[in-house]
Simulated assay, not measured.
Amino acid sequence: MYKNILQNIDNIAVWPVISFVIFFLFFLCLLWWVFTADRNVIDKLKNLPMEEGEKNSLSNAKPE
């Protein structure tokens, strides 16, 4: 049933191509960002979850 509906849509073959091009461009942009990103920014992002955990554990600690 769905196969017949999709076959009746004009220019249906162009949508998978558009989707692939969008994905490929996004992937290339991401690769470019990874190879050109500043190492300090990567280190800061890498340590971010640990810093958040330290802040939360210190704020939850009860003073003696």
Score class of each variant (00 low, 15 high):
residue 1 M to H: 10
residue 2 Y to G: 03
residue 2 Y to V: 01
residue 3 K to S: 09
residue 4 N to C: 06
residue 5 I to L: 12
residue 5 I to G: 03
residue 6 L to E: 15
residue 8 N to K: 13
residue 9 I to N: 04
residue 9 I to Y: 10
residue 10 D to T: 09
residue 10 D to H: 06
residue 10 D to S: 14
residue 11 N to I: 03
residue 11 N to R: 10
residue 12 I to H: 07
residue 13 A to M: 08
residue 14 V to D: 02
residue 15 W to L: 14
residue 15 W to D: 00
residue 16 P to V: 05
residue 16 P to W: 07
residue 16 P to G: 05
residue 17 V to I: 14
residue 17 V to E: 06
residue 17 V to M: 11
residue 17 V to R: 12
residue 17 V to K: 12
residue 19 S to W: 08
residue 20 F to N: 11
residue 20 F to L: 14
residue 21 V to L: 13
residue 21 V to E: 06
residue 21 V to Q: 03
residue 21 V to S: 05
residue 23 F to P: 01
residue 24 F to T: 05
residue 24 F to N: 04
residue 27 F to S: 04
residue 27 F to N: 01
residue 28 L to I: 12
residue 28 L to V: 15
residue 29 C to E: 01
residue 30 L to M: 15
residue 30 L to P: 00
residue 31 L to T: 05
residue 31 L to D: 01
residue 32 W to Q: 10
residue 32 W to A: 09
residue 33 W to K: 12
residue 33 W to H: 12
residue 35 F to E: 08
residue 35 F to D: 06
residue 37 A to T: 10
residue 37 A to H: 02
residue 37 A to C: 06
residue 37 A to D: 05
residue 37 A to G: 06
residue 38 D to Y: 02
residue 38 D to C: 03
residue 40 N to E: 15
residue 41 V to K: 07
residue 41 V to I: 13
residue 42 I to D: 13
residue 42 I to F: 11
residue 42 I to E: 14
residue 43 D to A: 05
residue 43 D to T: 07
residue 44 K to V: 09
residue 45 L to V: 06
residue 45 L to D: 11
residue 45 L to H: 03
residue 45 L to T: 01
residue 46 K to A: 08
residue 46 K to P: 05
residue 47 N to M: 04
residue 47 N to P: 06
residue 47 N to F: 03
residue 47 N to K: 13
residue 47 N to Y: 04
residue 49 P to Y: 11
residue 49 P to T: 07
residue 49 P to H: 07
residue 50 M to G: 10
residue 50 M to K: 12
residue 51 E to G: 01
residue 52 E to H: 02
residue 52 E to S: 01
residue 52 E to V: 09
residue 52 E to Y: 05
residue 53 G to P: 00
residue 54 E to V: 05
residue 54 E to C: 00
residue 55 K to C: 00
residue 57 S to A: 11
residue 57 S to T: 06
residue 57 S to L: 11
residue 58 L to P: 00
residue 58 L to M: 03
residue 60 N to H: 08
residue 60 N to S: 15
residue 61 A to C: 12
residue 61 A to V: 11
